[in-house]
């Protein structure tokens, strides 16, 4: 009896603590949503910026009239989607090779993989731009997608995961005459769902918010990604239409929340923890 009470009190404390933490985490998003529904004058008013207003559609219409917001959303989806799929697949492929084969140069190659995680994006900006210019890829999806098709982080994560995969299963697949790629595709990859989901979410998230490279890689209005479009609407010294920007932010938030809810169960099922156990 007493113990049950104490446990209930304990749970209450857990809820209170988590509740406070969650509130702090989501408040800015609440503010974003609220601001997107207010008129321009009300957003900055300390007295009225607490409750949603009825101006969302108007802000959205304003945004639609000045910027190709749906096109930007589509661009963001295409770029993030393709880079995510390719990053997951190519990282798994390379990670598998690093984990399950011994070959000449493996150590040095893997060191190169790790090195790529340490490079600040600002460093490669101008040379990358020059490459894209020479290939005439500025303002194309190629420029947005190709440099991000695989990441060192992805290969690292996948390699750590693959190291735990039982060798016996691979051997027996080989006995059955499966090709190496076939083994990877049919035997190994399906067991890596959680790791793939985790890497997928992180990649998608990073790409969704990626900013600096798209800024340089595209300048055509039709090729803008969502965060890029929003950043262009904010320039100190100019009139900034905050309500419209916030409406755009709200739109940009939806796909990523859906994605996270969808893959969440994989994401927390041990995908990352395996990565350092190898």
């Amino acid at each position: 009896m007493g113990k049950g009470l104490r446990q209930d009190a304990g749970m209450l404390l857990v809820y209170v603590l988590l509740g406070i933490g969650a509130l702090i985490s989501i408040y800015p998003f609440y503010w974003m949503f609220t601001a997107s529904t207010l008129t321009e004058g009300d957003i900055f008013k300390t007295s009225s910026a607490w409750l949603p207003g009825g101006n969302f559609l108007e802000n959205l219409r304003g945004l639609e009239s000045s910027m190709p917001v749906w096109r930007a959303l589509l661009n963001s989806l295409i770029v993030s989607g393709v880079t995510t799929i390719s990053t997951v697949f190519l990282s798994a492929l390379a990670g598998y090779a690093f984990a399950k084969f011994s070959f000449k140069g493996r150590e040095i190659l893997f060191f190169l993989v790790l090195m790529t995680m340490m490079i600040p994006a600002q460093v490669t900006l101008v040379p990358l731009f020059i490459i894209m210019m020479k290939l005439e890829w500025i303002n194309t999806y190629y420029a947005l997608i190709l440099p991000n098709m695989v990441t060192g982080f992805g290969v690292f994560l996948m390699r750590q995961q693959m190291m735990g995969f039982p060798d016996e299963l691979i051997e027996s697949a080989r006995m059955d005459g499966s090709s190496e790629f076939g083994t990877f595709l049919r035997i190994v990859l399906p067991t890596m769902k959680p790791a793939c989901a985790a890497l997928g979410i992180v990649t998608f998230m990073n790409q969704w918010g990626n900013f600096l490279w798209p800024l340089v890689a595209v300048n055509d209005k039709e090729m803008l990604t969502l965060p890029l479009m929003l950043s262009m609407m904010v320039a100190p010294g100019n009139v900034v239409k905050y309500g419209e920007v916030m409406a755009g932010s709200v739109i940009g938030l939806v796909p990523i929340i859906i994605l996270f809810l969808f893959f969440r169960k994989y994401f927390v099922s041990g995908a990352f923890s395996g990565s350092v156990k190898g």
Binding site: S25, F29, W31, M32, M205, P227, L230, S231, V234, L253
Partner: peptide
């Protein structure tokens, strides 16, 4: 998890 995806303007 949400804060990780906040946009810069907000």
């Amino acid at each position: 998890f949400l804060p990780a995806i906040i946009d810069l303007v907000t």
